[in-house]
Write a protein that binds this DNA or RNA. Structure first.
Lengths: 250, 250
DNA sequence: GCGGTTTTGTCGCCTTGGCGACAACCCGTC
DNA sequence: GACGGGTTGTCGCCAAGGCGACAAAACCGC
């Protein structure tokens, strides 16, 4: 695993992110990292790929973007010395972002098992699980928020309801029953909308049969909601409400 | 550290999040967790506090919210069995969110050193560092996005410029020089705005002396930008542009 | 220097959605 | 079963900002 020109352990140690590793660790990492050059605008990995490598950016700048039906959101930039592609450290994960080179880059590629073994001295499995229960939540939240950028209130609310039903829902003859009683104001806070607009949107959902109200409790029909999120701006059952659509860049 | 009624290791193992721990680990965790009851609407921790405990939610539902000048965004909900307050696992961290009980809760409190020791068998310091270089980025991104909810393009752009200058900036007589050349379209993607609006806003910033343009390169004056972000909707130098302000809930 | 490409600057029109102000209403409590 | 606070439903007005369409610059490879 070290046939290529190779990377210098000392050089790695000068990267601020890795300076705390012991000389031995740096040495090991340097040997395990497979160097690779990437040209500006080329893609390092695609969203949806199964995540089985970790990357270290050795030089250049890379760009992480989230893509939702040809809407792309620049999620962040990676600078020299940073470790990226870390979704491979979580259990059975596919990459949520696409990563491409913003300028010409050199990267080091390594298997997650090797990386975790070297840096922590713990089997990947264990680390993975620990990550999942601790920072897994951040991951979910991050995905939610990147998703939200550029969506209408309608879509954000749909997404939020779906999430809530997955987490706090109970199956019911008519759909998924939300066990907690959320006020419209709560939901508004959750999706970043005004209380009034949230009320209106919920009523629209009810008209469209996407949610059912049982007193002040809510029952959700997940299929319809999911459809609503996948599909561009259009109507699912009733062609009444004119959908949405002021969220496209150019 | 087990004077209280105590928590049952077996019961902990039934929480889906923790089921993978060995009986010994569960036992140890059960003994280390200090149980505590929290009443609905009471606060478990405040934003800004120094983060030196990890929590496990044993029953009930808790609510994480991000607060930015009395605008509060409901960031997420914590269900039974989940581990939260994990910012204490990162080095010298203060809590970014406030957490309060959405319903009556019982929680288990534990020191991060103990938690990591039990679950991973590694010293906190080492785990902490590893977390930082791997998932630290998510953390930053998450904070950015929660921040962004309910902000105007002006403010989001200001924030993004600040972030970029911190990461890719070089000090200069007049301020911080951005070394990469971003097109307005890049910036627009980053803040989730249209390209045109981004152009306009950048020009406004230039008029106000918040940024300086040197050909197509940009120099940033961090103080002014920072001021702009802290202050409600008003003007920093020139009272010309009428600021913003359609982002308050009720 | 030249011509094509990329980036920037500006309009105008139009939708989304924030916000204040109430009225109606539900629901638990005394 | 009446009261009162929290919640929901609805309007109207208006600011923010998306989007198309171009024109003007700046940039780049030859």
């Amino acid at each position: 695993m070290s046939p290529k020109p190779g990377i210098d352990g000392k050089a790695l140690g000068r990267l601020p992110n890795l300076a705390w590793l012991s000389p031995d660790q740096l040495q090991g990492l340097a040997q395990s990292l497979v160097p690779q050059k990437i040209k500006r605008r080329d893609t390092i990995f695609f969203e949806g790929e199964s995540a089985n490598r970790v990357f270290v950016l050795l030089s250049g700048v890379a760009k992480l973007s989230f893509i939702h039906r040809d809407e792309r959101v620049l999620v962040g930039l990676v600078g020299p010395g940073e470790v990226f592609g870390v979704s491979s450290l979580l259990p059975h994960m596919t990459r949520p972002f696409r990563c491409d080179a913003f300028s010409d880059c050199t990267i080091g590629v390594v298997r997650p098992e090797t990386f975790v073994g070297l840096v922590l001295g713990v089997p990947l499995e264990r680390f993975s699980r620990t990550l999942e229960i601790t920072v897994g939540r951040w991951w979910m939240m991050l995905q939610r928020y990147t998703n939200f950028v550029g969506l209408s209130v309608r879509e954000r609310l749909a997404g939020a309801l779906l999430e809530l039903s997955a987490k706090f829902g109970v199956e019911d003859a008519r759909g998924t029953l939300l066990t907690l009683k959320f006020t419209h104001a709560d939901l508004a806070e959750l999706v970043g909308a005004s209380r009034q607009r949230t009320t209106e949107q919920l009523n629209e959902f009810e008209d469209e049969g996407i949610i059912i109200r049982d007193g002040r409790r809510v029952i959700i029909v997940p299929q319809q909601l999911r459809a609503l999120i996948e599909t561009p701006a259009n109507e699912t059952a009733r062609p009444a409400h004119d959908g949405v659509g002021q969220n496209r860049r150019n």
